[in-house]
Structure formats: C-alpha cells, structure tokens
Design a protein around this nucleic acid. Structure first.
Lengths: 232, 232
DNA sequence: CGTATTCTTGACTTATATCAATGTCGGTGG
DNA sequence: CCACCGACATTGATATAAGTCAAGAATACG
C-alpha cells in the first residue's frame, strides 16, 4: 500500500520480520486517517479488523451500563490495538477515540491467526506485548487498591510523561490534548478531585496547567509525590 | 513423568496437541506437591520455571513497598501460571501461595519459547489465555473505578462461585479456605468492610459465613446486588 | 485448655464524591 | 474583529462511604 515497509521496520513488533513477510502483511493493510474525536471502532461493534497506530494518539474507553466512562489505556504510535480476536471474542471490548489527528493501519481480523501461525516469532512478540499490557493493568489495580488519589494521579501523569512527553522551555509537556476528566477516568476519580490536585501542584510549582494541556515543570518532585508514603 | 498425558488432554490449553508433542512436554516436566500456605514461587525471585496447576488452588499476591498486599488472581486447576518470561521479565511479579493442598507441574523457563515456536497452535491458545486474563483485569479496573464496595464484593464472590463453587445442601460453597482479608485484597477494601457487608448479607439470608468459609444461599439475590444500581 | 488466628461490631475520622456556582478559554459566526 | 457560546476548569460547601481505631467474641489448633 502507500505505507512503506521501512516505517514498520522501526517498530519493535516487526523488527524481526523479513522484508518478504512485511510486504505480505502490507499487501492486506488499509491505512486510514482519523480526525480528533472520531472513533476507529466502537465498543460492542463486530471486530472486523485489528490495527496498528502509525501516528497520533488514541484513547481506548469503556462505558458501563449506567453510563460511566473509564479510559482503559492510551494508544501510542507503534502500538497494536483492537485485537479482540486474540481474546476469542467477536466484538470490541472498548471504543478507540482519536485524541489528536491520527493515522492507523488496519488488517482484516481473519488474517491474525494466519500471520501468527505462519510467523511464530511474531506470535512470541505479540504475546509479550499483551503480557506487558497485563502487567500494566495489574499495576493499575495495585495502585487503585492501595494508594490514595493524589499518588495515583502522580503515577498516571508520570506514565503519560514517559509515553508522550515533549520537552518545552518550562519543562516537559504532554503531547496531546488531555482534560482533567480524562485524567480522572484514568485514575478512577472525578474531574473535581483532579482539578484540586493539579491546582495544589501548580501552586507548588510542580506542574503548569492549561485547557486540555499539562506541563510538568518539576518531574523530580512529582516522582517524590508518587513514591513517598506521605507528600512533602 | 508420573503424570499421565490423558490428564493434560482434558485441559483446553492442550486439547489440540498431538500425543507425541504432549509426551515431549511431559518429558521435561517436574511435578510437585505444595502444602497450604507454601509458595510455589516468590515475588522477585528469578523465574526459573513456568507452571500448570493440576490440583488445588493458589492465590497470586503482590506486596507493595509499604507492605500492603493485594491478590492479583486465583489460580484454578488447569490454569497456566508463572510465565513471567512471556512478559519479557526475568523475575516473578508476584508470589503464588497454595490456598489448599495443591499439585503443580513445572517446566524450565527456557522451554517456553521452544514449545511455542514449535507449536504455533499452542501459541495462539496461550495468547488467548493471557488475553482473557487481560480482560479480567480490565473488568476489575472498571469495577474499582465506578462501583462501590458492596457491588465489587458481590462481583468478586460471584466470580469465586463460578470458578470454585461446590454445591452443598444449603447452597453453593466456595471450595477453598478464604478469609475476609482475602476478599478485601481482591476487591481493594479492608477486612472490616468486607466483614460488615457479609454480616449484612447473612442477616438477609443471602450468604452464610464461617471461618475461612463462605456459602452462598441465594445466588439470585447476590446477582441482583451485583447488577442493580442500588441494592434492594 | 490456652493461645493464636480470624471475625464481628461499635465509635469516630477522613478522604473523596457530590452539589452548586462561577470563571476562563478558544473557536465560530455575525 | 469582537461578541457570544459551549466546553473545560476552578473552587467552596456539604455529604457520605469507607477507612481507622479499639475492643471483644468465636473458632481452630497444638
């Protein structure tokens, strides 16, 4: 397709694949641009494809029966997402929304098992990916079980910083639009509480807030907040 | 080894393997009995083996720096566990403790990738297993984010019932010793709160408590508690 | 039997949600 | 270009679920 295989080559997921195999994969891929706020797929929809994020940021959300929303995870460039079929299920468990202008590569669901079975290396890598994701989920469960909100928010922001931090003059900024509500949905709290926490941090010169924007000016202090039992 | 391949044959994880492959696997397996309270492996220890639970029940726990413990999951007969290597890590992320007298089958870590690469079918199945586990983790995150404690406990008990329910005269009983503390660590709360909730349920004739024991007498009501917004 | 867990229950505290009001930003269209 | 609108954010007051502290009772075990 229009996507060059050299792009994929740089992703750890594909680094061990041969050019021939990569080309074979690209043969069946469809690339698609997604505008901010648009969904790549919706929760409950039939899983017709699985995807790779080439550019941009997505948030994967789930809504409960009573309408509450949580953010399951953020998808960053190079991440595979929407492989519901690996879970032996026919529909997507969540909705993938573009946070910024994004470009995704999609393959028909049927191709998954065929790729995996033909290329055991890929299987191993893919499993490690899911394994990592599982570990992240456990970390989050552990945090939600044992830590109070401020620490959880600190951890979440640090994670965002690592995955999407862009250095700016005053510090490191999160490289996509993110609201207080988003952070609340990532940490299992309310936008009010997040707002209060960020305000407090701002007055301590740890972060600098903004509309759908967050810049960390003192990552060290933030780390201390996240690690230490009681804040300073 | 002393373990018959017909036993493994009944497990979904191996149902598609040929007798020859199964025998090859058993060739390298070591079976081990684990007394209640003993660990199969400890958090942080070098991951020398991965395991299969043949008989009994295990709880996988993690402790935080400040000593708080959570139960990551329960391991039931037929479950694969302790495959840290799939996460590309050298140590076990948690401790696996026997809740009852258990029998596990262990293989050296090095064999994992070799099995998987020689048997892509197994790879697919294993990945579905991890995928399922990931989904469970997300369910738990969603519950912890949006539901109040009573509902979470209800869900946890229902899950235990499904995985380890044994019919008895008065209802269905959880088939291994489980304390209020355990339930608290599974739901991110305290043993006090769990105790109060179970007491309340007992007075409503939904469950019947006991020391390290729990019998559900009215699964329907419990389900209602878990599903409905506000309790009856 | 006595000792050690595990469990229950009450009184009190607190973190965090909820409710409510107001402020601020940034884009759109008149 | 400015004014207005809607989305996002802040902040105070209040409510409450659940944690903490504390004491005792029940059960298992050696």
């Amino acid at each position: 397709m229009r996507v060059d295989r050299t792009v994929l080559k740089t992703l750890s997921l594909f680094e061990r694949m041969t050019d021939r195999d990569l080309d074979a994969m690209l043969e069946h891929a469809i690339s698609r641009r997604v505008a901010p706020g648009d969904a790549v797929f919706e929760q409950g929809a039939q899983a017709k494809s699985f995807f790779l994020l080439l550019h941009g940021r997505l948030k994967v959300t789930q809504v409960t029966q009573d309408g509450q929303q949580i953010i399951v995870r953020m998808v960053h460039p190079g991440d595979l997402f929407g492989f519901a079929m690996a879970l032996r299920r026919a529909d997507y468990p969540g909705t993938a929304l573009a946070a910024t202008e994004s470009v995704v590569l999609g393959w028909p669901t049927e191709m998954w098992s065929c790729f995996v079975e033909q290329n055991p290396r890929l299987a191993v890598t893919a499993m490690q990916t899911i394994g990592q994701r599982l570990e992240e989920a456990h970390t989050r469960i552990r945090e939600m079980s044992t830590e109070e909100v401020e620490k959880r928010v600190a951890h979440a922001v640090l994670r965002l910083l690592k995955q999407a931090g862009r250095p700016v003059d005053v510090g490191i900024c999160i490289d996509f639009p993110i609201s207080r509500q988003d952070i609340a949905e990532m940490t299992g709290t309310t936008l009010h509480t997040v707002s209060r926490i960020l305000s407090a941090w701002e007055s301590k010169n740890i972060v600098k807030g903004g509309r759908q924007k967050l810049t960390v000016t003192d990552a060290g202090r933030l780390l201390a907040l996240a690690e230490d039992a009681r804040n300073l």
